[in-house]
């Protein structure tokens, strides 16, 4: 589907991306994580040719996008804000976009507008942040792209709207096999949607992982002790998620029998093994250093 080969980009003398390679397959939802300024948005803008890479190539179905920009009819980029939409109503935007994207499905767009009860007569700028995101998504999906690039799609919206926005994306992938490349600070959103994730850190894409496999690697253990064992646990470099009095919650790799034995030797009064979520995995994997 989309393939990034050895992509590098410097902006105003600062290296933002260096030799980044990534492939996203059909129907895949890929979550791109990274701190502010790590180059997530730059990567999306490079794919969409808003800016040009200093080196490297971007291929869509084997076709280089830079040389054949028409293939962008299959790729939609939804930025955090889209000032172009501001002065138009839904109908006007449809009128513009259907002339640019030949596969634009007006019936499907209308159906989604009705389903999510988005006002059709208001100008885009008059809508709330959540409705703006939903309208942008509706227009993006109605263009029938094969790949959607979403930059922080759940940023600044409430929990209910976020749920709707995420559901819209999940439905689209399920129904049409659309691929999605999504950047987000919210690990819970990434966890809910993505098949694979990757980290942009120090100009490079690192830790590209399958999400389910990743979660299977770790186990969360809740324990209660008679004595203070905090120092003993830390000395073993075991990531501690929480400590409340005599209760301790730690994370260890499922296969790490040595650490498990060590904890058992501390004679806990309570021992509960629980599944982990993505945030906890990251604390374990990166030594408690929060990177998002």
């Amino acid at each position: 589907m989309i393939e990034l080969r050895q992509l590098s980009k410097a902006i105003d003398g600062n290296q933002v991306l260096k030799d980044v390679s990534l492939t996203i397959e059909k129907g895949e939802i890929f979550g791109l994580l990274g701190r502010n300024g790590s180059g997530k948005t730059t990567m999306l803008r490079l794919i969409q040719q808003i800016i040009f890479a200093d080196s490297g190539t971007i291929l869509f179905d084997g076709v280089e996008i830079k040389k054949h920009p028409k293939v962008k009819q299959n790729i939609i980029y939804m930025p955090v804000q889209n000032p172009f939409y501001d002065k138009y109503t839904y109908k006007q935007l449809v009128d513009i976009l259907r002339r640019i994207y030949p596969k634009f499905d007006v019936t499907y767009a209308n159906e989604l507008m009705n389903r999510y009860e988005i006002p059709e007569t208001k100008k885009y700028r008059e809508l709330s942040t959540g409705l703006k995101k939903q309208l942008s998504l509706v227009l993006s999906f109605a263009a029938r792209p094969a790949l959607i690039l979403l930059d922080e799609p759940t940023d600044g919206i409430d929990a209910v709207t976020r749920h709707d926005v995420l559901q819209l994306m999940v439905d689209e992938v399920a129904e049409r096999d659309t691929s999605i490349l999504i950047t987000s600070h919210r690990l819970e959103d990434i966890e809910r949607m993505c098949n694979r994730i990757g980290f942009l850190e120090d100009n490079s894409l690192t830790n590209v992982m399958d999400l389910d496999e990743l979660k299977e690697e770790y186990i969360k253990i809740q324990m209660a002790f008679d004595t203070d064992v905090n120092l003993a646990i830390r000395e073993q470099n075991i990531p501690m998620l929480d400590q409340a009095g005599v209760f301790y919650t730690v994370l260890i790799p499922k296969s790490d029998e040595e650490k498990k034995s060590f904890l058992r030797e501390l004679k806990p009064k309570v021992w509960n093994e629980l599944p982990v979520n993505l945030e906890e995995v990251f604390i374990a994997k990166f030594g408690g250093k929060r990177r998002w």
């Binding site: 803008r45 808003i50 962008k72 009819q73 172009f84 640019i100």
Partner: peptide
């Protein structure tokens, strides 16, 4: 100045 140039550049045209 308004930031709408990005939208044009993202469209399927060179």
């Amino acid at each position: 100045s308004k930031g709408t140039m990005d939208f044009i550049l993202s469209l399927p045209y060179n």
